[in-house]
Simulated assay, not measured.
Amino acid sequence: MVTDLSITRLLEQYDFHSKLYVNCLVDIKPDDAQKRINQNTNHIAWLAGNLVSVRYRLGNSIGLKEQDVFHELFKDQRPIQKHITYPDLAPIQKDWNRITPLLRDQLFALTEEELLAPQPFDAPLLGASNLLNTISFLIDRESYAIGQLGLLRKIFGYEAMKYN
């Protein structure tokens, strides 16, 4: 059984991440967005673009017909590609700002039956394999990536991400 409280709590986290994402990208210089700590880590531009891509992927799985601007770079959860210069943060963030309210409205409109339907794509889940748990996993994953963005800010000498 899904309660209104379940989706409400997920949407609160979604809204919080929507703000933190933007806060993580404040004042990042283009060169710093492309820097990697080492060859085993992602950089800010990849993390930012991947987060946008995942929101579009979730939206597509629940009926949105939108496609992210940099779909080819991030499709199929493609890992960072070593010899590619990723787009500047401004167009990536513009795409974030485009999908965020559309996806939020779509998530808010989901019925209990839709939330309990089988998961739309393969994702590691705790509990039942349904859309609600997929949404929960993806929102949790956003926390992980936003944490990396915040850490990279500090590593590259920027002030800490703001929560307000």
Score class of each variant (00 low, 15 high):
residue 142 E to Y: 13
residue 117 A to I: 00
residue 111 T to E: 05
residue 84 I to L: 08
residue 142 E to A: 11
residue 1 M to H: 15
residue 116 L to Q: 09
residue 100 T to Q: 07
residue 145 A to S: 15
residue 157 G to V: 11
residue 131 L to Q: 04
residue 74 F to W: 07
residue 103 L to S: 01
residue 130 N to H: 01
residue 98 R to H: 05
residue 104 R to D: 01
residue 139 I to E: 09
residue 22 V to F: 11
residue 75 K to F: 04
residue 125 L to D: 01
residue 87 P to T: 00
residue 20 L to T: 10
residue 88 D to N: 14
residue 125 L to I: 01
residue 50 N to K: 09
residue 151 L to C: 13
residue 38 N to V: 03
residue 30 P to C: 00
residue 149 L to V: 07
residue 75 K to D: 04
residue 72 E to V: 09
residue 146 I to K: 11
residue 57 R to V: 08
residue 143 S to N: 13
residue 84 I to Q: 07
residue 54 V to C: 12
residue 13 Q to E: 10
residue 116 L to R: 08
residue 128 A to E: 02
residue 15 D to R: 07
residue 113 E to C: 02
residue 15 D to S: 11
residue 70 F to A: 09
residue 83 H to I: 00
residue 103 L to K: 03
residue 131 L to M: 04
residue 26 V to S: 00
residue 8 T to V: 07
residue 161 M to R: 14
residue 86 Y to Q: 02
residue 70 F to P: 12
residue 23 N to D: 07
residue 12 E to F: 00
residue 144 Y to D: 14
residue 25 L to F: 01
residue 32 D to T: 12
residue 75 K to S: 07
residue 28 I to N: 08
residue 19 K to E: 06
residue 44 I to V: 14
residue 131 L to K: 04
residue 65 K to M: 01
residue 57 R to S: 08
residue 49 G to K: 10
residue 64 L to V: 08
residue 137 F to N: 15
residue 88 D to A: 13
residue 83 H to D: 07
residue 140 D to H: 14
residue 88 D to C: 07
residue 94 K to W: 09
residue 141 R to Q: 15
residue 54 V to K: 10
residue 162 K to L: 11
